[in-house]
Design a binder for these strands. Structure first.
Lengths: 211, 211
DNA sequence: CAAATTTTTGACCGATTGGACAAACGTTAG
DNA sequence: CTAACGTTTGTCCAATCGGTCAAAAATTTG
């Protein structure tokens, strides 16, 4: 038992420097992808020399791995909170809002994840087919219950979850495009509130005119 | 006039080989990103030696640039076709369907584009703020007209377009994740039809129960 | 203080990168 | 056939890559 997962037993300096490196690596990895990023870049962003960085993380992959492990937990937290108690429509609405807030507040995390998936998820494939699938299946069952109870319209729960992911993360992953298209006026800080209003209406009523 | 854009005047072999290279480069770039791809990789995928490839494209960037230029035209074609004639709801529905078909049939093009945007669109930023913004603004005006005429519900046309992009392209860009979550049964070829059905309902009626 | 330990650094290494180049090869027109 | 032109290849290069290592510097511990 516990083989390979011994207690890290880290120094104060080690903890601080590792955090510094992870913060810098998040910045670099999320904008250039794994292969597109260099250790030198990360080291410079962290304000230390390359060999010094390699003293805290032996390999480039270790940094990325640590980053991804932390990411998944916080990233899936909103979905985990989606619970059977409470009004279904309210639950879904607040899930969408929370996801959109994460896209606004943690765009780098979103892009890091998007980069990984785009390139075939070579490093987290097992997690997707394992932990993630289990969680989504579980929540899909909850949603299906709501549908059977007539609380929300009958559709495919899995694709519903996908559409929430897609629409919210879009504002982090495609941020440059969104801002470029909206222009300097509407592309300012208010764009997330506009998006929130739009998404609420879309997922509630769709586009059919009220007539 | 015509400075820097002289007629290419290419040989038959040149045309064929350039196509071969672009096809190979699309495959490589779309899965590894620009910096993550090597000329050797592309050359091997195209079945030729690296110096041979560099005979047809002097620099790695030239390949990527040519690819992106072609991409944008075909990629925005469906939006260009969104026209004022015909029933608005039908127009939007067929736009969504066409975008989803493109995600199914040209996933590499979608990923190439996503990769570029994710990394800040360093090579196509002017196009986004220029040609793309103009097109979207134009179509947003069309949609706004539909709203004023009471043909579809009143919302933000720009964010509506974003949400269509996000939901459809998701099935190309995040394909690995979609398949992993859906599992071997539901993640097969039928997933695009399921997605089409779901998106149609979402954009038409939303999630509110029919009661 | 002094010893032990942890942290930082500069120098270095082999592999890979994008790209240059001249020579060889193939093709075609006269 | 031969000269001209288009194509392909092997070889080479400087820069950069991820990573090592011994030694210096800083810190902690006794």
């Amino acid at each position: 038992m516990n083989a390979g997962t011994e207690a890290p037993r880290r120094t104060r300096i080690q903890q601080e420097k590792r955090e510094l490196i992870l913060e810098a690596a998040l910045e670099v990895f999320s904008t250039h992808g794994f292969r597109g990023s260099t250790i030198d870049q990360i080291a410079e962003a962290a304000g230390m020399s390359k060999p010094n960085l390699l003293y805290y993380f032996r390999r480039k992959e270790d940094i990325h791995e640590t980053l991804m492990q932390r990411l998944l937990d916080t990233w899936l937290a909103p979905l985990r909170e989606l619970d059977d108690i409470g009004d279904p429509m309210t639950e879904l609405r607040s899930y969408i809002r929370r996801k959109l807030e994460m896209a606004r507040d943690f765009p780098r995390e979103s892009r890091l994840f998007a980069n990984e998936i785009l390139q075939g998820a070579p490093r987290i494939m097992p997690l997707l087919a394992g932990e993630l699938k289990t969680l989504v299946d579980e929540k899909a069952a909850v949603i299906k219950g709501w549908m059977r109870a007539g609380k929300i319209a009958r559709t495919d729960p899995w694709h519903l979850i996908f559409s929430i992911w897609a629409t919210t993360q879009h504002y982090a992953d495609f941020d440059v495009q969104v801002r470029a298209v909206l222009g300097p006026n509407r592309g300012g800080d208010g764009r997330f509130e506009d998006a929130a209003r739009f998404l609420e209406q879309l997922f509630l009523d769709g586009l059919k005119p009220k007539s």
